[in-house]
Amino acid sequence: MKTELTINGRSRAIDVEPRMTLLDALRDAAGLKGTHAGCEHGVCGACTVIVDGDAVRSCLMFAVQCDGMEITTIEGVAADPGELDVVQDSFCETHGLQCGYCTPGMVLAAKALLAVEKDPSDEQIRDAISGNICRCTGYGQIVEAIRLAAKRLRESNTAAMEAGE
């Protein structure tokens, strides 16, 4: 079935079986391997991507459902190869990861939170990532990373405002 997805700002036409999940389509039809399969039944959150502004589980959507939708995957987060965005860099600063398998989903869940909440409480941070299971970190350094990213984003906004931008 012909389907058109806008992935990380770029429109791609793919031809997939209706049963192919968005997760598999991103990985196998679009060749974007940063979105990971963890449980394929909607619990672990490793496959989290942003669809039309919301963090969702890509294993719980079929690619054909997403025809015409805007999808952001982890590959669309960094501005340029080798240049991390603030959230990604904050994960590196606090070592908010170990094996890296749940990390793309965590980063996107964090970005979805920070898009709507500039100064999240720890409770809000924990709630935002509660659907993303991490087996390595015990979440402590992930919460620290998101806290740090929020602070940095607020400071850069303040600096931008003061500079009259």
Partner: peptide
């Protein structure tokens, strides 16, 4: 010091067997 493996993972550029 930072952990040198981290950047590739936060960017989704790890290389897992599924990839």
């Amino acid at each position: 010091r930072r952990v040198r493996e981290d950047p590739r993972f936060v960017a989704g550029h790890g290389r897992f067997v599924q990839d």
